[in-house]
């Protein structure tokens, strides 16, 4: 049996203000999987992702990434975890005063990559996301889709084993969203495990990947290779029914 690359065992998360974000989560993701996390706003998708890259610690339970218990890691080990996990967000989170090239290179610099390696790897990553010709632009000079592609290039620069995408198409038009999904598929095909939190029903159905449905901090469904939304599984559809 293949060892899971991400494993959550009976994970609970209660924020300091008392909000219960996650309830008894058990989840296992095998290496190379492509998983969609779907659910209403506030259902716990982002909270679950934050536990994986150690932005938050679980109140109870275990979060295991590549066989290591994340919440047990020392503070000094967290950067090394994050170099193994690429993360992209709805708001791109690029450094506004750095060019696309510099933004991507920065993630390499922090690892101490040599000067000769940086341009080669950055150009390769930018080619993968089809953004090489805009390498010297500032983020403000790019469209939303281009900014997200730059963010993906940055997330991939350290060859992460896992790519977490929190609403990556939330701010994008359908064409740009589709571009992003194509890139994520390409990355997944190279063996990177991908976890995407999204509201984009159409995309989830087209991609036909594993779909985990969350509601009020709980996993309520886990569908393999699902045409999830079109099969009347959408929580809204259930409510209406």
């Amino acid at each position: 049996m293949v060892e899971p690359i991400i494993e959550l065992q009976n994970v609970n998360l209660i924020y300091p203000n008392g909000t219960r974000a996650l309830k008894n989560i058990d989840l296992s993701v095998t290496p190379g999987e492509f998983v969609f996390l779907v659910g209403h706003t506030g259902s716990g998708k982002s909270s679950l992702m934050k536990l994986i890259y150690r932005e938050n610690d679980p109140t109870l339970g275990l979060v295991i990434v590549e066989g290591n218990e994340v919440s047990e890691m020392k503070r000094s080990q967290i950067p090394y975890l994050r170099r193994r996990i690429g993360v992209i967000f709805q708001d791109f989170r690029l450094l506004g005063h750095k060019t696309v090239f510099e933004n991507v290179a920065y993630a390499l610099q922090v690892t101490g990559a040599s000067r000769s390696v940086i341009p080669r790897k950055v150009n390769k990553a930018l080619t993968l996301v089809n953004l090489r010709e805009k390498a010297d632009r500032l983020p403000s000079q790019l469209s939303g889709g281009e900014q997200q592609r730059a963010a993906i290039a940055r997330a991939l620069i350290n060859d992460p084993v896992i790519l977490l995408a929190d609403e990556p198409t939330g701010n994008l038009d359908p064409d740009s969203s589709w571009d992003i999904m194509q890139i994520l598929s390409k990355v997944n095909a190279r063996g990177t495990t991908i976890l995407v939190a999204t509201h984009n029903q159409q995309m989830v159905d087209i991609m036909q990947k594993r779909v985990i449905v969350m509601d009020h901090g709980e996993i309520i469904k886990d569908v393999q290779n699902g045409m999830y939304f079109s099969n009347d599984n959408h929580p809204h559809n259930n409510e209406e029914a």
Binding site: Y53, R75, S76, I78, P79, Y80, L81, R82, R83, V87, R93, L94, L95, Y106, A107, V110, T111, R154, N158
Partner: peptide, 14 residues
């Protein structure tokens, strides 16, 4: 900016 640095795996000293 600091949050982004931490996100991409920059150590505290960096």
């Amino acid at each position: 900016e600091i949050d982004i640095m931490q996100l991409v795996g920059a150590a505290d000293w960096f």
